[in-house]
Design a protein around this nucleic acid. Structure first.
Lengths: 364, 364
DNA sequence: ACAATCTGCTTAAACGCTTGATCAAAAGTG
DNA sequence: CACTTTTGATCAAGCGTTTAAGCAGATTGT
């Protein structure tokens, strides 16, 4: 750019007229080296701040200055080539758009990856097998450090063959017949927390509307519900547990059954169900939480906190799932005991169970 | 580091293909060349299926076979280094987790990028300036083909300086004082569509609950509302337009005002508002759509289709936003006229406006 | 004072791949 | 049969870095 520079160096490469509108000439390390009157090795040492490199203060300053002047950026591609492996972590998701959940996983993974100097390569497969295969291939070709294989709801899964070619961690899913590293929500714990919210409010007849579709969540939350009841000295009554499709319609449809049960509180399999339940209860002229306390599951953003009254629920640790997945992958966290790491589902108490009591002491 | 793997296999003899190709990491082109008894150049030509390369049928087959046997995968890093630019497209998002919307943008961008042989490099900044700067730097260092800079709600934005170093497209946002390429939803069109749904049902007194916060959507949807009324020969009545905070509470709180207006239909700024409005209306003992027809905006997944009754709304074209962004970036779509491409917001009619009439003809 | 050490920097060999330039042999020409 | 062309494959020069090894000159130690 400076007159001196243009005299010393033609700078224009006639063989490659820029086809793209506004792309500038690639400034390489060699350009910096020439500009600063040193070798590329020196520039490299300065750029990477090599600890055991012996660089004179003057030279270092001169190099740094030249870098700034020329607007040099290291070429990560070249860097990776030399080092043999990149700073990429692949994230294969089966549903990015279908649900807000995936976003949270991405977010957590991204933050954690970033923290360790890694970058996320994201592929959305929408459950399509060939797409998934291509996605994994592409990641392997880019020599990713490893792959996070995530599903949008907690479930068992098959491990795609190609995954085995690199390090990987299952996120929000697990492989029943393999000792693959995995990180999933602790459904049992979540079910207990949800139930405990109601127990703490003094409820004794607590219904559980479970999902109709089989899933770890279905079994886990039920078990958590039972454990919580047992801890509270409440006898488990199978008649207080029934199934519905886990969405608003399911929750709405469950109202009739629910009202036959003579209960004072319900724990819904998820927030969407609770949403439908609200509608049903209100239509019956019942008040939440006075006539019926309600607890959901998922802490679904945009919904739970803004229902009327705001819904008590249990949060799925999606962000943490992503972050823990990365930590597991990088070996920052060592899997203790089981290869399947279970993350807690923190309870979120809101008005749907009555005025929040800060005493919070276990009743009875 | 892969301590486990490097310990398990010292691998000192690179000249012979290992018995287990899966466990050994570095299968390079050279290995294939040696295995097939040809030069790396030949392998390269076969792998890339170079059109004008003259390769004997026998050799080609032999190479392909060796590739399969050895489980060779091309090293994209090296490939990119040679070609000078990578097959990456960067996507910088200001909110991945906060909203389901971002997921749709990612999905669209990813699908379209994939279609052209590109891969998405995703960075979530959560609106943090330094993070954003780092993210863009990282992408530039990886020599991305270009960057999609996206925001989770449609708004004007400043263009980060570093963006100018490469090709970029603004997605769901625009720069008022620059001619940067951008793709955004057509809010006016959306407002018109939303209002038209109600007009078509024969409503004449249609309220519009706008947002309190300034945004292109606020102005655009209002204008669309007015245009639709005008087309239908309905006089615009400023008293039928009022503001509320664009969430459930806002919608709920607007009911009182709304009922003073003697209207038969409402167009809500967004679905969340409509959700609150539902609660308020039901509480007043009013029926939707009989006493009041309701239309929302956003077609927010998980909500709109499952409200009671299902909410008529207008969809924000997030998926298309992402896809169009990529097309614009790659020059597949040429910007016609304005550098800001506006995408249509398709109406989604559901029961909240009364039984769906397939006649659909403009009333009067 | 002479070797040993330290300093500051350079050389050069990779890393895995692409590609224009070559080249030997086979196949067409006339 | 002496050529030109075609075919099938190799050579070798990079792409932008990193890094072990090397090498002068200055600074020690004894």
């Amino acid at each position: 750019m400076t007159s001196e520079k243009s005299l010393r160096e033609p700078e224009v490469n006639p063989s490659h007229p820029p086809a793209t509108p506004r792309t500038s000439h690639p400034v390489t390390m060699r350009d910096v080296a020439e500009g600063a009157g040193v070798s590329v090795a020196t520039v490299s040492l300065v750029v990477n701040n090599k600890k055991d490199a012996r660089i004179g203060a003057g030279t270092r300053k001169r190099v740094l200055e030249t870098i700034r002047e020329l607007g040099y950026r290291p070429n990560a591609l070249a860097k990776n080539l030399v080092s043999g492996s990149s700073r990429f972590i692949g994230l294969v998701a089966d549903a990015i758009a279908t649900t807000p959940f995936a976003g949270q996983i991405i977010h957590g993974a991204q933050d954690e990856a970033w923290k360790h100097g890694f970058v996320l390569l994201v592929a959305n497969t929408e459950g399509d097998e060939p797409v998934e295969k291509d996605a994994i291939s592409m990641m392997l070709e880019h020599k990713v450090r490893g792959i996070l294989y995530s599903t949008w709801f907690h479930r068992p899964t098959q491990i795609p063959a190609a995954l085995q070619e690199t390090d990987f961690v299952l996120v929000n899913c697990f492989s029943p017949d393999s000792d693959a590293l995995a990180v999933v929500p602790d459904e049992v714990h979540g079910g207990r927390e949800a139930t405990d919210i109601l127990v703490r409010k003094g409820h004794r007849r607590i219904a559980f509307i479970n999902a109709t579709i089989p899933a770890p969540a279905k079994d886990g939350r039920l078990q958590g519900y039972r454990e919580a009841l047992e801890s509270a000295g409440i006898a488990f009554d199978p008649h207080l547990v029934f199934d519905a499709y886990p969405d608003q319609e399911g929750g709405y449809g469950a109202v009739e059954e629910l009202l036959k049960r003579d209960v004072t509180a319900v724990f819904c399999y998820n927030d969407r169900m609770a949403m439908g339940l609200y509608d049903g209860l209100k239509q019956e002229g019942l008040s939440i939480p006075d006539d019926m306390a309600v607890v959901g599951f998922d802490n679904q953003e945009v919904i739970a906190a803004h229902m009327r009254p705001p819904l008590s629920t249990v949060a799925l640790p999606h962000y943490e799932l992503g972050a823990a997945g990365v930590r597991l992958l990088l070996g920052v966290d060592e899997p203790a005991g089981s290869p399947v790491l279970k993350l807690e589902c923190p309870p979120v108490e809101r008005d749907s169970v009555g005025p929040i009591t800060l005493t919070g002491s276990r009743l009875l």
